[in-house]
Simulated assay, not measured.
Amino acid sequence: MPCAAIDLFCGIGGLTHGLLLSGLQVLAGIDIDGTCQYAYETNNQAVFIEADVAQLPSDIISNIYPNGLIRVLVGCAPCQPFSRYTQRYRKEGHKGDKWRLLYAFADKVRDIMPEIVSMENVPELAAESVFNDFKAALIEMGYYVSWKIVYCPDYGVPQSRRRLVLLASKLGEISLIDPQYTPETYLTVRDTIGNLPPIDAGQSFEEDPLHCSSRLSLINIERIKQSRPCGTWRDWDAALQLNCHKKESGSTYPSVYGRMSWEEPAPTITTQFYGYGNGRFGHPEQNRALSIREGAMLQSFPYDYKFLPFGARLSKKELGIHIGNAVPVNLGRAIGESIQRHIGEVAENG
């Protein structure tokens, strides 16, 4: 039973690449950010369409699917409005239109009626009315729906990220495959980036421009020298501690300016993972923050995934956003394998 997928809000292709690794054909990715096109198309056998998913006519998407295939529609609508890193949205009400994009996803499903749907997002979305509305819409359209909060190391992602994964099918009951790793076999920071050549803060590896790290001020160099894996800023001499740390309000953020541990999965890779002061993004033993390449590999992108054309200007901020916002590739692979298993079961049962 051949099938093919289209990836909404595709970014640089984390979900698409995982689906491809699972053996699932991906026809196209759609995203409003045209700067993602190079990475998406260079690494994946799929076409990038620069468009606002909410405004793109559904028949354009529908017409991409060849006749006679099981149609799969997947996507990760921008999660910033629901993330725990943007609590202000829940204090002040949702700002802007990004939080409405899950409704746009539901509209596309209603117009296209693909046989299988998958949606991935932050766990906090489960507490939002827009998620309940999304599920209710799918059920009303005749889909079998399942969802769960996933601990990403269970599926080969070397970071302690949790994500919400929803699967829906018109063909029958569908669910995510069982975890593929256990705490004893979780991929660690050492497993993932331990073989990369050492570099200093502010330097890059000549053979791979993306293996580059941000500069550190003299005081931050002293801070990271006094940091230990899984430690906190409380390990520093008092003279190195920031005034905000000494306030009661600052005591709840001990991981800021922290080092990762070689023997554990990394913390959640955010869009600012390349900054030492933005979380526990200090290298386990080198006195620097993560390089761009290391952040990508901890998101389970392959080492040879290409993010920029040769000789292009490298912007850590732009690449940080691209990589940090991506669906981890190995989680995408697990989603693809779940879809493949489901289709196989449907075929077996006639």
Rank of each mutant, 00 (worst) to 15 (best):
M1Y: 07
I6K: 03
L8M: 01
C10D: 02
L15Y: 09
H17Q: 13
H17T: 07
H17C: 06
L20S: 12
L24C: 11
Q25L: 14
V26A: 02
V26R: 01
L27W: 06
A28Y: 05
D33N: 14
G34L: 03
G34N: 11
G34R: 13
C36K: 05
Q37W: 03
Q37T: 06
Y38Q: 02
E41K: 08
T42W: 01
T42D: 00
N43K: 08
Q45R: 14
F48K: 01
D59W: 15
D59M: 09
I64N: 00
P66N: 10
P66I: 05
G75R: 05
C79K: 05
P81G: 10
S83C: 09
Y85T: 13
T86V: 08
Q87M: 14
Y89M: 12
G96Y: 01
K98P: 00
L102K: 01
F105C: 05
A106Y: 02
R110M: 05
R110G: 04
M113F: 04
N121Q: 12
N121D: 10
P123L: 12
E124M: 05
E124D: 14
A126F: 11
A127R: 13
S129G: 01
F131T: 03
D133T: 04
D133Q: 13
F134R: 00
A136C: 09
A136N: 13
A137F: 00
A137E: 11
L138M: 02
S146M: 02
K148L: 04
I149N: 12
V150I: 15
Y155I: 06
G156P: 10
P158S: 11
L166E: 04
L167K: 04
L167D: 04
A168Y: 07
L171I: 06
S175Y: 12
D178T: 11
Q180G: 03
R190A: 14
T192R: 12
D200A: 15
Q203G: 00
Q203V: 02
E206C: 02
E207F: 07
C212F: 12
S217V: 09
L218Y: 07
L218F: 11
I219L: 09
N220Y: 14
N220W: 13
K225A: 15
R234E: 13
D235R: 12
A238V: 12
C244I: 12
E248Q: 11
S249P: 00
G250W: 07
S251R: 15
P254K: 10
S255N: 11
G258W: 07
T268E: 03
T270L: 07
Y274K: 03
N278H: 13
G279M: 10
R280C: 13
F281G: 07
P284M: 10
N287Q: 14
A289R: 07
L290E: 03
S291N: 05
I292V: 15
D304P: 02
D304W: 08
K306V: 08
K306A: 09
P309Y: 06
G311Y: 11
K317D: 13
L319I: 10
H322T: 00
N325Y: 05
P328D: 02
G332T: 06
I335A: 11
I339L: 11
V346K: 10
V346I: 15
